[in-house]
Design a protein around this nucleic acid. Sequence first.
RNA 1: GCCCGGGUGGCGGAAUGGUAGACGCUGGGGACUUAAAAUCCCUUGCUCGAAAGAGCGUGAGGGUUCGAGUCCCUCCCCGGGCACCA
Length: 865
Amino acid sequence: MATDSTSYDFSKIEPHWQAFWEENQTFCAKNFGDKPPYYVLDMLPYPSGTGLHIGHPEGYTASDILARYKQSCGHNVLHPMGWDAFGLPAEQHAIATGTPPADNTTKNIDNFRRQLKRFGFSYDWQREISTTDPDFYRWTQWIFLQLFKYGLAYVDDKPVWWCPALGTVLSNEEIIDGRSERGNHPVELRNLRQWVLRITAYADNLLEGLKDLQWPDSTKRQQTAWIGRSEGCNLQFDIEGHDEQIITYTTRPDTIYGASFLVIAPEHPLALKITTTEHKEAVEQYIQNTKQKSDLARTDLAKEKTGVFTGAYAINPMNGEKLSVWIADYVLLTYGTGAVMAVPCNDARDYEFTQRYDIPIPKVIKSKDDPTEDGSQTPMPFLGHGTLINSGPYTGMDSKESIPKMIADLEARKHAQATVNYKLRDWLFSRQRYWGEPFPIIWINEEDFQSLDNYPNSPFREFLPKEPIAYEKDGERFYALPLPDSALPLKLPEVENYLPSESGESPLAKALDWVDVYANLETGEVVSRQSMEAPSTPWVPARRETNTMPQWAGSCWYFLRYLDPKNDKVFVDPKVLEYWGFPDFYIGGAEHAVLHLLYSRFWFHFLHDIGILPKPEPFKRLFHQGIILGEDNTKMSKSRGNTVDPDTVIEAYGADALRLFEMFLGPLEDMKPWNSKGIEGIARFLRKIWREYIDGEGKLNTKIVDEAKEAPSLERVLHETIKKVTQDIEGLRFNTAISQMMVFVNHLQKANTFTRNTAKIFIQLLTPFAPHLGEELWERLGEKPSASNASWPTWDESLLHVDEITIPVQVNGKMRAELSLPASIEQAEALAAAKAHDRVQSHLNGKTLIKEIYVPKKIINLVVK
RNA sequence: GCCCGGGUGGCGGAAUGGUAGACGCUGGGGACUUAAAAUCCCUUGCUCGAAAGAGCGUGAGGGUUCGAGUCCCUCCCCGGGCACCA
């Protein structure tokens, strides 16, 4: 039943159809069936306390249009929604208010869901998931255990970024210019025991896999740059008076004759060893200074390069020359070998360093267009490739071509190995927070761990890796035992307060009855120590891991759970997975280009490798919607007062208007400003549609007639519109699809009558964009809802051609006239008609016609002199 | 600094190498109305002109082409990414 509105009353129409879709489960996806499946995915939102902002519905409307369109095209469409609800804001709210994060999270989710439903998105709410739901994170924990089992999860005591204000460790990716991405707080280095995932093992796979993905180029480029593969070689330099060698990494072995010194990082293990007594004090002072520098200060490009001479000399393996060895903080221990051969003539950094310390700069490459013998016309530093000079037997060779030969020659003398380096670092996977997935890991001492050998069938072996994971504390060694599958989910305990401890441990460390446990090595049982008196074999004391997983964990794989959200046996039934596959279309913000999207790919590559998933790449087609700016063309923010609240807009104009307007603003991927006047135009458009269909009494407009044949001119516009809208939806060009619909409605308005069939087809085109109005008018046309179940209209190409066409005539490329000619006209006739035209004549008079161009149905151009 | 995008009316934006400015907003004029809202019609790139019309015009300059917003080169500006990764 349609509503009884006599005017376009969206406040009545919209809730009516939302209720209809819910009652009739219009958009509930069924696993299996004859229809081809199509999976449309939105990036999982974080349900913040402030509710939806105006940017959210941009991507959601786009995916909703696609989903409804695909449903009309006969697909079985899966279009789900859920919540990435672990994370810092909820925890900080909990710290501030003392209420458990779960409570507030539930509240925020309810609000988000309410707001999303007001937009009429075609989500299958029966498949809703939340990463915070134990039935969900049970499988996040299970995937972690797989990573653990296969040796891709380990603990490390290396220095990590600690943010005092947030009370947690952050990953490299969460730091921007020495401050936390979230909250912009200063960060510092601290040594803490951390869980790390070996994503570097997948560097090449992740790079290779990018090639076949239909992703925005910029995102592929960002991931490529983040992985940062570089091919080069390690070069070994002997040190005068020492047995040890300095191993440097370089991508430019061709410049080796131009090396004038070596630089090692201040943290390099040989730094103090090779320093001569004479330079000891200065070197120690320098290393000390470096330690005190924040990484921000150290990586500040603007600062002048500093360093200190060690007094040691290395030998250039090519020519036997002595090279001074320096320590400088512009060389990073964490990349390559922590040592470089400095070639000032071909490297800007080395060049800059020599300017300060007055080191010689031998020239070994001249530019190809430098005619001089000695390369004096080649500027320094010269970073490109060219012709080698002053390079012994290699002089005269092309520098690029000399690389393999140089490596081979040095390799033969055991001074080089070709090697590959990556910028990508392993993924720091633990957080010292409460509101995240607990690690399903317990720690036991060495003796107890060895006694596990006595229990060959222990459930603790289920996920035990070949190489045990252990760490040392106060001289004692502890071993990680993975909880068995049967112990999952390992739920978060309730705690008194959510403040992290000053020591850097998570709030979970204070939940002693949860942390301190006994584990039964034989049965796999784990119980609180408070529930049992000091037990004996096979019980051993154990301590739970108190770190939690980062927010990225759940979002790595959540979209598989939508396929089979209630399954308590497996994370997704393989048959269901086989039916749906991975998302056909994924839309979300570009800010996740390297974090979520890289991590998720890593997990999928891994799960594919161990035979759990059929394919390694989760997202074949990816799209980023652009950001919607405030009306003043700056980023929306509360402090600027330029935010737009979706609830308010819906109250004033309706959800359909808001959906349509966000799509009409401009290309989906562009950044574009909000315009409060612009939405008025969309509202006018919707009212105009209503008036064309419904009269003042709420009855069907008498303009709509039951004749079979539409007037040819209107029919042609209709078919143009079907074609344009269809192709634009496929290409995600919603702004131009909408403008074509406006063009069509302007034609409807001018027509005296139009057929019911025309009326129906246009509503079908409109419905993905403005589904509430679409359904309302669909039913008032006497059709059965939902309009999304009616099959998508097709256009008839033969109706698009016109008998009489307008051809512009140019003289010397300038527009001079328009001719109305039969479409089928021959070239000679067309040209004759053009030349006969008065206005053309006046431009031809007294000139010589030298060329005549006729592009059929397009243009005539007469060239005169 | 390097690597990508992008610069089109007053504004958001359209334009497979073929009539630049579709569509919408804004502005101006008019109709309907007691009035307003709503709606409809005309108009709205710039300059000259009463008009017909002419000239100019897609960041700047050059080039290719019968023809360039679109392709090529140089430069300027804006946005994004990376940033001592050897």
